[in-house]
Amino acid sequence: MIRFEDVNKYYGPFLALADINAQVARGEVVVVCGPSGSGKSTLIRTVNRLEEIQSGAVRFDGQNVHAPMRAAALNRLRSQIGFVFQSFNLFPHLSALENVVLSPWRVKAVGRAEARARAMALLERVGLAERAHAYPAQLSGGQQQRVAIARALAMEPPAMLFDEPTSALDPEMVGEVLAVMRSLAKDGMTMMCVTHEMGFARDVADRVWFMDAGRILETATPTAFFGAPQHPRAQRFLSDLRSH
């Protein structure tokens, strides 16, 4: 469903992504982990072309996202890829409900009433129906991130990308966001998650990609990755995680 083919990306002389070849199959949950600055976020942001690449291709459902295309075609592609940000990025001038309604209504031209009904159902699903009319500033971090997930789901994307969705949260709010992500995975959603939540990776992921210095060094099932990591860098990463 998502396929990276020989992807290279530079920031000036700095190699941010090197020879990435990997794919996420339909219905699969992939967790991308690795130390800070290893290129995880850059990688996930190339999938909907929030980051450009210098060579290679990123295919979504067979279509190269980075091919030259009209703005409208790129917008349509992006609308099919749900994206959840580390910093939530809810629209602060809109209520939770309006945040979820806006894009189906304005981008997909779903009728406003229908978009509202579906948004309400999605807020219900993430456990925030009673906060539908609150503004983002009135919500806790965990609640904001759940609204952000509902907002992405409102476009009915066949795949969801999560870029460190719990890194900006207080510890006691991490669980509520992960619970929503777990239930999505259980429903068969194709997911690519950059996260440091190793418990989530162990329980939910079908495969783990370990990245360092712009490369994917290891891909394995969670059992194999956490039980017997092959790459020395991955071994050090995991032992550093366990030592505190």
Binding site: R78, S79, Q80, F85, F91, V107
Partner: peptide, 21 residues
């Protein structure tokens, strides 16, 4: 914040729509 434009574009809004809404 740059994330506002990113979020709008990620949802499929064009540049004009992101600006307007």
């Amino acid at each position: 914040p740059r994330g506002q434009m990113d979020a709008a574009r990620a949802l499929g809004h064009g540049y004009g729509g992101a600006m307007r809404f």
